[in-house]
Measured scan of single mutants.
Amino acid sequence: KKSYVLIKVKNPKTKETHTIVVPEENLEEVLKALASQPNVKVVDIERFP
C-alpha cells in the first residue's frame, strides 16, 4: 500500500497556492526539484492516512 503526501506550494510573486499530491517514496526528489524553483515556496506538507 502506497502512502501519499500532500505538498502545498505558494508562488510569492502571484500569491497563488497549489497543492501537489506525490507518493511518499518520491517526496525527497520532488522537494529537491521544488527547492530549485526560484518562485516556489513550500508552505505545508501533510501525510495521507
Results as ranks from 00 to 15, higher is better:
Val43Glu: 06
Lys13Val: 14
Tyr4Arg: 02
Arg47Thr: 09
Asn39Asp: 13
Ile7Thr: 00
Ile20Thr: 02
Leu6Val: 10
Glu28Asn: 06
Ala35Val: 05
Ser36Met: 12
Ala35Asn: 06
Asp44Gln: 13
Ile45Tyr: 04
Ile7Leu: 04
Pro49Trp: 04
Lys10Thr: 15
Lys41Pro: 02
Leu6Asn: 04
Leu34Asp: 00
Ala35Trp: 06
Asn26Met: 11
Ser3Trp: 15
Val30His: 03
Lys32Phe: 05
Glu25Tyr: 05
Ala33Tyr: 14
Lys10Arg: 12
Val30Thr: 14
Lys8His: 13
Lys41Glu: 14
Thr14Ser: 08
Pro38Asn: 07
Arg47Gln: 06
Glu46Trp: 08
Thr19Cys: 14
Leu27Thr: 02
Gln37Glu: 06
Thr14Met: 03
Ser3Arg: 08
Pro38Val: 08
Pro49Ser: 05
Lys8Thr: 13
Asp44Cys: 12
Glu25Asn: 05
Leu27Asp: 00
Lys13Asp: 12
Lys8Cys: 04
His18Pro: 00
Glu29Trp: 12
Lys32Thr: 08
Asn11Cys: 05
Arg47Gly: 03
Pro49Leu: 10
Glu25His: 08
Val40Phe: 11
Asp44Gly: 13
Leu34Tyr: 04
Leu6Cys: 05
Val40Leu: 12
Ile20Val: 05
Pro23Trp: 15
Asp44Met: 10
Val42Gly: 01
Thr17Pro: 03
Leu34Glu: 00
Ser36Leu: 14
Pro49Tyr: 07
Val42Ala: 01
Thr14Leu: 03
Leu27Ile: 05
His18Met: 13
Ala35Pro: 01
Ala35Leu: 13
Ile7Ala: 00
Glu16Asn: 04
Ser3Met: 14
Pro12Tyr: 15
Lys41Ala: 10
Ser36Asp: 09
Thr19Arg: 10
Asp44Val: 11
Val5Ala: 06
Ser3Asp: 11
Ala33Ile: 13
Val30Asp: 00
Lys15Asn: 14
Glu29Phe: 11
Val42Arg: 01
Leu31Thr: 01
Lys15Leu: 11
Val5Arg: 02
Asn11Ala: 02
Tyr4Met: 06
Val42Asp: 01
Ile20Met: 08
Ala35Ile: 06
Lys2Thr: 13
Lys41Asn: 09
Val22His: 02
Lys1Gln: 11
Asn26Phe: 06
Pro49Gln: 11
Glu29Thr: 10
Asn11Pro: 01
Val22Asn: 00
Lys41Ile: 15
Lys41Tyr: 07
Pro23Thr: 06
Val30Phe: 11
Pro38Leu: 07
Pro23Ser: 09
Lys2Asp: 15
Ile20Asp: 00
Lys32Trp: 06
Tyr4Ile: 03
